[in-house]
Design a binder for these strands. Structure first.
Length: 116
DNA sequence: AGTATGACGGTTA
DNA sequence: CTAACCGCCATAC
């Protein structure tokens, strides 16, 4: 894939400022999310495992700051439900790319990406 | 170095 | 099913 415009920023919990500059950790996370195939998803925890650092919480914080440069809708909670603020839009985007959705959640048994 | 914060996860009630 | 609680960990200040 083409490199994402490094214009975005990472950093977690930015209080008091718009966006800080990307951190190595944020790039790791965005890199993994960027590789999720259309119609497939990963849980926040899955992303943390694939990067080898952090937890679902830290992954979520990174995406909250610049998930805009990656297919953010492909990262959902362990329950299969997209994060609250993005619920409707995420479900719409996922359904559009052929991801199995049931009610307000993704059918993880069918849509979970194996990371390969 | 210590405290606060957050697009999470798992357990317990 | 919902709600509360605690553990987790990178980052900001």
């Amino acid at each position: 894939m083409t490199p994402r415009p490094a214009s975005a920023s990472a950093g977690l919990a930015v209080r008091g400022g718009p966006r800080s500059q990307p951190t190595a950790y944020a790039r790791l996370v965005l890199d993994v999310v960027d590789r999720i195939p259309p119609g497939k998803v990963l849980t926040y925890g899955d992303v943390a495992e694939l990067t080898g650092r952090g937890t679902g919480r830290t992954v979520g914080t990174v995406l909250s700051q610049h998930g805009h440069e990656v297919p953010w809708q492909r990262v959902v909670q362990a329950s299969g439900r997209p994060a609250e603020p993005l619920l409707q839009q995420a479900l719409r985007l996922l359904a559009a790319e052929g991801c199995p959705v049931e009610g307000e959640r993704v059918v993880l048994t069918r849509a979970r990406w194996d990371g390969t």
